[in-house]
Design a protein around this nucleic acid. Sequence first.
DNA 1: GGTACACTGCACCATCGGTACAGTGATCCG
DNA 2: CGGATCACTGTACCGATGGTGCAGTGTACC
Lengths: 209, 209
Amino acid sequence: MSFIKPRSTATTRDRLLTAAEVAILDKGFAATSIEELIAEVGITKGGFFYHFRDKSALVEAILERHLTAEEDWLDGLFARAAEATTEPLAQFLVFLRLLREQMAALPDVHPGCLIAATCFQERLFTRTVHDLARQNLLNWRARFHARLTAIAQTHPPNSKIDLEALADMLVVLVDGAIILSKTVREKDALPRQIALYERFVAEVFRDVG
Amino acid sequence: MSFIKPRSTATTRDRLLTAAEVAILDKGFAATSIEELIAEVGITKGGFFYHFRDKSALVEAILERHLTAEEDWLDGLFARAAEATTEPLAQFLVFLRLLREQMAALPDVHPGCLIAATCFQERLFTRTVHDLARQNLLNWRARFHARLTAIAQTHPPNSKIDLEALADMLVVLVDGAIILSKTVREKDALPRQIALYERFVAEVFRDVG
DNA sequence: GGTACACTGCACCATCGGTACAGTGATCCG
DNA sequence: CGGATCACTGTACCGATGGTGCAGTGTACC
């Protein structure tokens, strides 16, 4: 090549990550070849393995980037909910509404959950990939659980409830609804499940006058 | 080979299916090689392609067999629930309890949902595979929805509720909880989610005395 | 005895992940 | 200005795997 390519250091690696993330969510990890990625980004095979030790390391990097981005995004939603009200239950319900609205606003069916995508390809990935996914889920469990516990202080549930499972339930519903919406090709499946969760949470903590 | 192998016609094909199903649920489709399957079953490559046009056709056959077995199994649970009571809500709740108990009795974490596993490997499979998965989910939606509608006749919910989404919710929770339990390696995640669903259904249709 | 079934055995192909390594142009540092 | 380092290129090569093609073979059934 004779033209001068803008020297972009981290950018090539980042473009690889983006191309790979899109491709993996679209058609799966195994169906995404390294050769197709380097063709898209415009580098050679040697260049790919300069950035990533192997295909697993690529997934590792995608997951890391994705998980922090997801965390920032949800933190943003929590912050907006905190602006609206300080009351724990109301705040959580606002957060859920914001989450549902954002999911409903997506143009197509949700591209899919990377966690779920890795979950069913066990042996293709390293320990690290699975640990990343695991830590991420445990993180969300802990965060939602803390909020639900706080809510239960001021709104004691009418009967004993498994708050940890209720915390997991949101993540479970999101992942499950993504599978459903991808499989039956209905983009409103996800927001509708979140709506049910909102109702459930509201009913569990409804103050029995 | 000199020893006389018992002539087992359909059995070889069936043993292939079983070996493949186990392997795919354990480590994923892409990580399961044809060569490992034929080694396990004790045939040659030619024998494999005599039974299946390609790897996708294998998945197709596994799904078909699996989905009918699953349907029979759930029908059995419904039948047992019908023996216990004829009242629609009580019957559905008995069914959910049976489902939860069976899931809790599994020795390890649930091996995983074939539907979900196919969902994230889009381009590796044929149209048929995806259509099978789709029809299966739509089937369960219709069946649960019919039951919920019947329940709503005798137990009008205290406020309007999306019964179709509530029907989907069970499938969504099961699939999502399998992902969760596989990822964090906690076998009780699935029964705990079903327990929450039981409570939700009971509360939605609780007669406001 | 003939036909169909359920394979075996073997040769071969393309794709893909991955290795190895020498070379090269741009950039940064002293 | 020189040297080191970065971010690659280019090429050659390897093994595993999915898949094809086809001739042959033992068994069962009619």
